[in-house]
Design a protein around this nucleic acid. Structure first.
Lengths: 203, 203
DNA sequence: GTCTATAGCGCGATAGAC
DNA sequence: GTCTATCGCGCTATAGAC
């Protein structure tokens, strides 16, 4: 149930390398990451990295696909669930994001900045527009407020959830302690759905 | 008044290099940027870069300070202006940000991701908490709604403004054309202040 | 499969002519 | 000030022993 401290201990070598690569790439970005760092983090030799994966680039592709899935994969199931209300969806998305991002704060900025410098990463995954338009979420949204552009609403929802983590490097020093930062993010779990409902029910 | 197409043409060599460095660093990040790229962009030789600036690192520090100022410098004067109302401040901040970011879309993600991998960049600039707390903006905010945490409000305001640009690499392909993306950002100039006022007047 | 040793090359930086 | 040419390091990737 709860994760073990360092779960890598009894993983296969290949898994250990992927885990390590995920950590190092996410922290430093592709350009600043060194394959030596990854090997060290994985507790193996540099040569093994090239034995299992052909190159730094190829290893990165694999890690990147997983990170994109972790960041955005959570959305589709919730948006398409016809059995929950719109309000419940807002609460669920927010709770999932805040909890996940408190554990992986630099996931969003990693994914977004790497996609920027290498946009092809995303190319295959763009069935998004259709899926989105036909989702239960957008249907419920249009039903409640046909005059609201669903795209603006989704941008705002994602912004509310992701931005405080994207901006953590600048917010954290302003807020002071790590603890206070966490405390504010936890508060937002309740506040974000309230704010989003405001946009639905007024204006 | 309006900027010239390529204003670098009659700049000093030092200025040309700074301009070029700003472009290349902002586009690729420190790790992926090559001093050779910068020299080429500036139309000069690689050796000249090291003649004017001691190193890639030093050149980066200078560029970074300018970029941080461009991204956040616009805030302080507006927040501290006691002669404008709270609503006017919201409108002014939004208009300034959207206009500026439409011209420099990858400024936020550059600044935020570079600060993450090198937090000392920011260290000297953290007189922010005090300035913020004593600003006309926060005073007006507390006067209107003493039960709202100003920090959450500011996070939301910045999120509304900056996030769509931070997420441009993923939003743009979803939205389709560059033109449609721009069109939505222009719409937000009017919408963001409305949404922010909602949070003030309800909930 | 895992290691040591090293090839091969791109990078930042510099020497030195003009 | 500006150039060409080159040094030397650190990186990715590979050869080859075990």
């Amino acid at each position: 149930m709860a994760k073990v401290k360092k779960a890598e201990l009894d993983l296969s070598t290949e898994e250990k390398i992927k885990e390590a690569a995920s950590i190092v790439f996410t922290k430093k970005g592709y350009g600043n990451a060194r394959t030596r760092d990854i090997a060290e983090e994985a507790g193996i030799n540099l040569a093994l990295l090239n034995y299992y994966f052909r190159s730094k680039e190829k290893l990165f592709q694999i890690v990147m696909a997983e990170r994109i899935e972790k960041l955005f994969g959570v959305l589709a199931p919730i948006l398409n669930d016809a059995s929950t209300t719109l309000d419940e969806k807002l609460e669920k998305i927010t709770e999932n994001y805040v909890d996940m991002l408190l554990e992986h704060p630099d996931l969003p900025i990693f994914v977004l900045s790497e996609i920027r410098s290498n946009p092809e990463q995303l190319a295959n995954r763009v069935q998004a527009p259709k899926i989105l338009k036909e989702s239960a979420f957008v249907k419920q949204l249009m039903e409640r407020r046909s005059d609201i552009n669903p795209l603006h609403f989704i941008i705002n929802l994602l912004g509310m959830n992701l931005f405080p983590f994207v901006a953590k490097p600048v917010l954290q020093p302003i807020l002071g302690s790590e603890d206070f930062y966490r405390q504010m993010m936890v508060q937002r779990k309740k506040l974000i759905p309230v704010w989003m409902k405001l946009m639905l029910d007024h204006g």
